[in-house]
Amino acid sequence: MPGNFWKCVSCVKMEYNVEEGRLPREFIEYDFAEDAMDYETQLAEARDIKFTQTLTEPLCIGSHIICTGTPTENLPWFAINIGCGNEDSERADIAVHFNVRLPQCYVVRNTRIHDKWGSEETTAYRLFPFKLNRPFTVEVLVDEKETLWAVDGEHYCSYAHRNPSPLTATWIQVTGIRDAVLKIQKTDLYPTTGPPIFEIPLRPSISHPRNEDEPIWRPNVIAKLSNGITEGHQVVIYGRLRPTLHSFAVDLMDVAREWPRANILAHANLRAHADSQLTRQLVVLNARLGAWGPERRQRTARLVPATHTTLRIVRGSGEWLFYADDVLIGELEFRASPNGVKALRIRGDLYPEEIFLCPSSTSPVQEK
Rank of each mutant, 00 (worst) to 15 (best):
residue 3 G to R: 15
residue 4 N to G: 10
residue 5 F to S: 13
residue 9 V to E: 15
residue 17 N to E: 12
residue 22 R to N: 09
residue 28 I to A: 14
residue 29 E to D: 15
residue 30 Y to P: 07
residue 31 D to V: 06
residue 32 F to C: 10
residue 37 M to S: 13
residue 38 D to G: 13
residue 44 A to Y: 13
residue 47 R to K: 13
residue 50 K to V: 00
residue 52 T to A: 06
residue 55 L to P: 05
residue 56 T to W: 05
residue 58 P to N: 04
residue 59 L to V: 01
residue 65 I to P: 00
residue 66 I to E: 14
residue 70 T to F: 05
residue 71 P to C: 11
residue 73 E to K: 15
residue 75 L to W: 01
residue 78 F to G: 05
residue 78 F to A: 03
residue 81 N to T: 07
residue 84 C to R: 14
residue 85 G to K: 03
residue 88 D to C: 04
residue 88 D to T: 07
residue 89 S to V: 05
residue 91 R to I: 10
residue 91 R to F: 09
residue 97 H to V: 02
residue 97 H to Y: 05
residue 98 F to R: 00
residue 105 C to N: 14
residue 106 Y to I: 10
residue 108 V to H: 03
residue 110 N to F: 04
residue 111 T to P: 11
residue 113 I to Y: 08
residue 114 H to L: 13
residue 118 G to A: 08
residue 121 E to I: 04
residue 126 R to A: 15
residue 127 L to C: 13
residue 132 L to D: 06
residue 133 N to I: 06
residue 137 T to C: 12
residue 140 V to R: 02
residue 141 L to G: 05
residue 146 E to K: 13
residue 147 T to M: 13
residue 154 E to W: 12
residue 155 H to Q: 14
residue 158 S to V: 09
residue 158 S to Q: 11
residue 158 S to N: 10
residue 160 A to M: 09
residue 163 N to R: 14
residue 163 N to V: 12
residue 165 S to Q: 07
residue 174 V to Q: 00
residue 175 T to F: 04
residue 176 G to H: 01
residue 178 R to P: 01
residue 179 D to T: 07
residue 179 D to H: 04
residue 179 D to K: 00
residue 182 L to V: 02
residue 188 D to E: 13
residue 191 P to C: 03
residue 196 P to C: 05
residue 197 I to E: 06
residue 199 E to D: 15
residue 199 E to H: 14
residue 201 P to E: 09
residue 204 P to R: 13
residue 213 D to E: 11
residue 220 N to P: 11
residue 222 I to S: 08
residue 222 I to V: 15
residue 223 A to R: 07
residue 225 L to I: 02
residue 226 S to I: 12
residue 227 N to S: 13
residue 228 G to C: 11
residue 228 G to W: 09
residue 229 I to W: 00
residue 229 I to S: 01
residue 230 T to K: 15
residue 231 E to N: 09
residue 232 G to D: 03
residue 234 Q to M: 09
residue 235 V to L: 10
residue 236 V to E: 04
residue 243 P to G: 09
residue 244 T to M: 12
residue 247 S to Y: 10
residue 247 S to T: 08
residue 252 L to Y: 07
residue 253 M to P: 00
residue 254 D to Y: 05
residue 255 V to T: 14
residue 261 R to M: 12
residue 263 N to Y: 10
residue 267 H to F: 06
residue 269 N to F: 14
residue 272 A to Q: 06
residue 275 D to P: 00
residue 278 L to S: 13
residue 280 R to S: 13
residue 283 V to D: 01
residue 288 R to G: 05
residue 291 A to I: 08
residue 294 P to T: 10
residue 297 R to S: 04
residue 297 R to L: 06
residue 298 Q to Y: 03
residue 298 Q to W: 01
residue 302 R to Y: 10
residue 306 A to V: 00
residue 310 T to Q: 11
residue 313 I to K: 00
residue 315 R to N: 03
residue 316 G to Q: 07
residue 317 S to I: 12
residue 318 G to R: 11
residue 322 F to L: 04
residue 323 Y to S: 00
residue 326 D to G: 00
residue 327 V to I: 06
residue 329 I to S: 03
residue 330 G to C: 02
residue 334 F to Y: 15
residue 337 S to Y: 09
residue 338 P to Y: 09
residue 342 K to E: 05
residue 344 L to I: 05
residue 345 R to T: 07
residue 345 R to P: 04
residue 346 I to T: 05
residue 350 L to G: 02
residue 351 Y to R: 08
residue 352 P to K: 03
residue 355 I to Q: 00
residue 357 L to T: 02
residue 358 C to M: 01
residue 359 P to H: 03
residue 363 S to E: 00
residue 363 S to W: 02
residue 367 E to Y: 06
